[in-house]
Amino acid sequence: MILQGRAVCLGADVDTDLIIAGRYLRTKDRRVWAEHVFEDLDPALAARMEGAVILAGTNFGCGSSREQAPVALREAGVAGVIAPSFARIFFRNAINVGLPVVECGGVRCSNDAPVSFSPDEGWVEAGGERCTATPLSGRMLDILAHGGLVEYWRAQQ
């Protein structure tokens, strides 16, 4: 599986409150989350999400367990998130909603540059350099391939 997109560079410790603020949670309308994604971090970011690969710092997605955070990113058109480390609930949620996430340190990020990555082979390529990433487990890849845990479950029936 090889995925690609344009780089969007973010810092460390981006918490789920910053990904989607608590005030937008009381709806089932996923477009609302996509429209307001990262609003409290930088209101200009939402418009750059279509086709983006987010290259973030350590501990991406820390804080609350809200699944609206990875759903907002996926709905906004993000192709994947790459970070040296993720908060564990966010990581699990992302796979469960079909958003590819890859643990990889040492990627140099330059905004809007092309990035490609492979969650199963375990590598990220950005700025002409290839970095080794932690490959996802077999079950996680299987869930991702189905588009998320709900679809995976339906396929198991």
């Binding site: 367990s65 809200r66 699944e67 609930i89 699990r92 949620n93 469960n96 909603v97 998320g148 845990l149 709900v150 479950w153």
Partner: peptide
Amino acid sequence: TGVGATDMAAIWA
């Protein structure tokens, strides 16, 4: 430990 909503749905199931 905390889990997300879809993980919880699988636990319900």
